[in-house]
Computed example of a mutant assay.
Amino acid sequence: MSERSCPDCAVRMERTNVTAEGIGDLYIETERDSGILDRLGVEYQTPLSASLCPECELTRLYADFSE
């Protein structure tokens, strides 16, 4: 995962975990019908990672695209 900066505070965000009881990893699910997500290279299930701002506590989810 690349380094992320908070859009509100401009400080480095820290990697964190987001969990839901009884659920494993978080993913986005996409359809593979030549839409925008297909052109971006998003798989059927793409894992998500979370970043947290230590200043304002903003938490953002990012799709982990393979490079």
Rank of each mutant, 00 (worst) to 15 (best):
M1C: 12
M1V: 07
M1K: 11
M1I: 08
M1Q: 09
S2I: 09
S2V: 08
E3S: 10
S5P: 05
S5I: 14
C6G: 02
C6W: 06
C6A: 06
P7L: 07
D8C: 03
D8P: 07
D8R: 15
D8W: 10
D8G: 00
D8L: 14
D8K: 15
D8V: 12
C9M: 08
C9H: 01
C9Y: 01
C9W: 00
C9F: 01
C9D: 02
A10C: 08
V11C: 10
V11H: 13
V11L: 02
V11A: 08
R12L: 13
E14P: 06
R15Y: 13
R15S: 14
T16L: 06
N17Y: 12
N17E: 15
N17R: 15
V18C: 10
V18H: 09
V18A: 15
T19K: 14
T19L: 10
A20V: 14
A20N: 12
A20R: 14
E21F: 12
E21M: 11
E21I: 09
G22R: 08
G22I: 04
I23L: 14
G24D: 08
G24W: 03
G24V: 06
L26Y: 04
L26P: 03
Y27K: 05
Y27V: 06
I28A: 07
I28S: 05
I28F: 01
E29I: 03
E29A: 14
E29S: 12
E29V: 09
T30Q: 04
T30H: 11
T30G: 10
E31Y: 15
E31K: 13
R32Y: 09
D33K: 13
S34N: 13
S34P: 01
S34V: 07
I36E: 11
L37A: 12
D38A: 15
D38L: 05
D38F: 12
D38S: 15
D38H: 14
R39H: 14
R39S: 11
L40A: 11
L40W: 14
L40P: 04
G41H: 03
G41C: 03
G41W: 03
V42T: 02
V42W: 01
E43Q: 15
Y44I: 09
Y44L: 10
Y44N: 07
Y44T: 08
T46R: 04
T46E: 09
T46H: 08
P47W: 05
P47A: 08
L48P: 02
L48S: 04
S49M: 04
S49A: 15
A50V: 06
A50D: 07
A50K: 04
S51G: 02
L52D: 00
L52H: 12
L52P: 00
L52I: 11
C53G: 06
P54W: 03
P54V: 02
P54A: 07
E55N: 13
E55A: 10
E55G: 03
C56S: 06
E57Y: 15
E57C: 09
L58G: 00
L58I: 08
L58F: 07
L58A: 04
T59F: 00
T59E: 03
T59Y: 00
R60W: 01
R60H: 00
R60L: 13
R60M: 13
L61E: 10
L61N: 08
L61Q: 12
L61F: 12
L61A: 12
Y62G: 01
Y62C: 02
A63I: 04
A63V: 08
D64E: 15
D64F: 05
D64M: 04
D64Q: 09
D64W: 00
D64N: 12
F65L: 15
S66F: 04
S66N: 13
S66H: 13
S66A: 13
E67G: 02
